[in-house]
């Protein structure tokens, strides 16, 4: 996919940059302030996962369209260790109990669509979409 913009995530400060970009982008697409806040929180979670577990990666943004509705597509890509057991990280309470925040189930709740692919040793790609209501 040819993404319009990507934000590299290497240091904690980059999380803020990704949030800022995502918020501005979603505002432009017509999201209300609640959804802007949700999208920013989802970006935080995705970016923090990259920063904490993969070391480095990027968050890419694109506009998507589907029969008359507009949305934001966010893809988080890293070349980290990958996730061995995806079902486990998608379980409620698995990451949150460790105090790591909303975790991937939280991201899934914040967004409308969620897709994850991961290969051990190669990295993880998480694609999420939210539609303007």
């Amino acid at each position: 996919m040819d993404f319009r913009t990507c934000v590299n995530i290497q240091k904690e400060w980059d999380i803020v940059g990704a949030r800022q970009f995502g918020r501005d982008f979603s505002k432009k697409l017509g999201f209300g302030i609640v959804d802007q806040a949700r999208i920013a929180t989802a970006i935080s979670e995705l970016a923090r996962n990259i920063y904490l577990y993969a070391g480095s990666g990027k968050i890419c943004f694109d506009e998507v369209e589907n029969v008359g509705s507009r949305g934001i597509c966010i893809v988080a890509i890293d070349t980290g260790p990958g996730i061995k057991d995806i079902s486990q990280v998608m379980e409620d309470g698995f990451s949150t109990s460790g105090g790591l925040g909303a975790g991937l189930p939280g991201v899934k709740r914040l967004m409308d669509e969620f897709d994850i692919t991961s290969k051990t040793g190669e990295g993880t790609e998480i694609r999420v979409v939210k539609w303007v209501r």
């Binding site: 806040a37 920013a40 929180t41 409620d92 309470g93 909303a102 189930p105 939280g106 709740r109 914040l110």
Partner: peptide
Amino acid sequence: MSFLLEVMISYGLALQEFQDLRET
């Protein structure tokens, strides 16, 4: 007020998670 909204997002998520866990 926007600041307050932002602070509450994670609480909102935690509440949803709680509701889902209660269903489970």
